[in-house]
Design a protein around this nucleic acid. Structure first.
Lengths: 208, 208
DNA sequence: GTCTATAGAAGGATAGAC
DNA sequence: GTCTATCCTTCTATAGAC
């Protein structure tokens, strides 16, 4: 007689998997990909190391899932801000950059893991996709800004890529080695916003 | 009696290693890290796969060496342009961005491998260092621009990181999947230069 | 003759095809 | 699920330099 999972069992299994992904994400944010061993992750989730393989075929698959979840959250948040109906495209761009940066500064470990930390190739491939999604979002708002006459004519795709790269790169270094003295997060945020607007060609005195 | 290598032997050995690194670089540029197997690299160098291990303890060590060599070449070229005594800091910045981009567009495979292609963690770590060296170079010229009154007051470190990230990110996508239609390299170069100058806050009408 | 670099094949593991 | 193919690495025998 074939074994059939009951609904309760399925739910428990999914909950365990969910919990595993969440704990793994936290471990990665704290110690980085390199130090996030299967044992460390399993310990954090309160399960045996071997049990990880009940939910994922390999450590790499778990890492990819961790990356995808975290990246999607960031993309979703940015999308909501950039596509908001509140404010001009330029204002939304500024808010988008701020949100991008603020979230990174509030969870530096995770941001570093998403943006730059050395990781296995499978995660690296996800990272390329992650950045492309950022491009697409920025490209939308840049295009709106051009159409509204708030930004000069330009290749929106190029500007969008540049914004992604610029903001990402700025956030990586203070997250990594760090400067001395450590820059004040609020200063950094202001600097970064101004820089992004310059980058897109927004008039400096652009009003409310 | 202890065996001592003759000068000729040492030279031959170094030449073989050199040739191996060069061939490996070419293979990586052509097919990427993922496809650059030990056998493929050895074949390109005209040696047996096992012989690779006479020169490097592991494939990863060879990959790191390949990355370092190629990255150092790029950094050196950029340094020469940015530190040239010819032209204002802003002009040198523009030329630097152009050289950065032009070299990437002329050897897209290698540029993609250096900037973005998924690679093993050991290469990823080198990549972080590579980008930091770019920051440092851009930071110099931005600072000079500020001191000369050609650029507005700003955090040079932040701008330098942003320039690195922006140019790098813009170059990655056309190098990888590519857009349709493929953008004209000269247009891209002009767009990128303008963008970098905006990013640093250079006056648009800045003359010769 | 002695010592080493190289070639070539074997080992052990893993991923992909069927 | 099995089987093949390929990958990185190690091992051994050979050829070549001193």
């Amino acid at each position: 007689m074939a074994y059939r999972k009951t609904a309760a069992e399925v739910r428990r299994l999914e909950a365990a998997r969910e919990r595993l992904v969440e704990c793994a994400t936290q471990v990665v944010a704290e110690v980085g990909w390199a130090q996030a061993s299967v044992t460390a992750v399993a310990d954090a989730a309160g399960i045996a190391a071997g049990s990880v393989y009940q939910h994922f075929p390999s450590k790499a698959a778990l890492a990819v899932e961790v990356f995808r979840r975290a990246a999607s959250r960031e993309v979703d948040v940015l999308a909501e801000v950039l596509r908001s109906t509140d404010g001009s495209p330029v204002q939304r761009l500024a808010r988008g950059v701020q949100v991008f940066a603020r979230r990174a500064l509030e969870n530096r470990g995770l941001a570093h893991a998403l943006l730059a930390a050395p990781a296995e190739p499978s995660v690296g491939a996800e990272r390329l996709d992650f950045r492309r999604r950022y491009h697409a979002l920025f490209a939308e708002v840049v295009r709106e800004g051009i159409d509204a006459g708030l930004l000069p004519r330009q290749d929106g795709q190029v500007t969008a890529a540049a914004l992604t790269g610029a903001v990402g790169e700025v956030l990586v270094d203070p997250l990594g080695a760090g400067r001395t003295p450590a820059p004040d997060p609020e200063d950094l945020l202001a600097e970064l916003t101004a820089l992004a607007l310059r980058c897109a060609g927004a008039r400096p005195e652009s009003p409310p």
